[in-house]
């Protein structure tokens, strides 16, 4: 069966490459848009406790909504294809990034901030030199969670005509062709694990040396 899957892969290189590219484009764009929207929003929310209470609670509820529900509900609203999938995946990626950006800034030691202000830093300097660098590991952990979720969610885009590697699995099940299942499932699994590892590395790189666990 593994050989059959391998043979299929070799005989349909373009089909596979297109699916992979769609999968990566979909995931990458959704993650990028969500980060650009949610990270600054989370940081702004850390400045206004009242709005944050509402927004963070909403994000926590949104986080529990099943990925398939978010994708499927796009169908009646936006129809099928790439765009609805992109919207759905972006929505999936927003809550973890938003929450971590907020928490990341909020957990910065208030005494360090008081010292910084007391030493004559402007608000912008405090943000750029103290708050952001200290919060960066937590923020990037949120992006990592979102990335893994988006790569998995992109698999489900196959259900609403968004394409990607999930297509091989849906056809494999529809036609009961087991090798086709492998052509989809193995790359998806590798992609997810690879994403996790890549973002883990990124998170470590972004963690200032003085704050890395176990480096003292």
């Amino acid at each position: 069966m593994v050989e059959a899957a391998w043979a299929y892969l070799l005989s349909h290189p373009k089909l596979f490459r297109d699916a992979l590219v769609t999968h990566l484009t979909l995931s990458g764009c959704a993650l990028a848009i969500a980060t650009i929207l949610a990270a600054p929003l989370g940081i702004i929310l850390s400045r206004s406790p009242r709005a944050a209470l509402v927004a963070i609670n909403a994000a926590n509820v949104a986080r529990t909504v099943p990925s398939l529900a978010v994708l499927a509900i796009m169908l009646p609203i936006l129809g099928t294809g790439f765009a609805p999938s992109l919207v759905a995946l972006t929505l999936l990626a927003i809550p973890p990034i938003l929450i971590n950006a907020y928490v990341g800034i909020r957990q910065v030691d208030p005494d360090a901030i008081e010292s910084a202000v007391g030493m004559g830093m402007t608000r912008l300097q405090v943000m750029a030199r103290i708050e952001l660098p200290v919060a960066l590991p937590v923020i990037s952990a949120g992006v990592r969670t979102a990335a893994v979720q988006v790569v998995a969610g992109a698999t489900l885009a196959a259900f609403i005509g968004g394409g990607g590697l999930g297509d091989f699995i849906t056809s494999g099940i529809a036609l009961m062709q087991l090798p086709l299942l492998l052509v989809g499932a193995v790359p998806i699994a590798l992609l997810a694990v690879g994403t996790e590892l890549l973002f883990h590395l990124l998170e470590r790189t972004l963690t200032p040396r003085g704050m890395r666990p176990g480096s003292s």
């Binding site: 998995a152 698999t155 196959a158 699995i169 494999g172 193995v186 699994a189």
Partner: peptide, 11 residues
């Protein structure tokens, strides 16, 4: 936990 669910079911 990291393997997407549809892929795990397929496997």
């Amino acid at each position: 936990y990291t393997i997407p669910s549809l892929a795990l079911f397929a496997l």
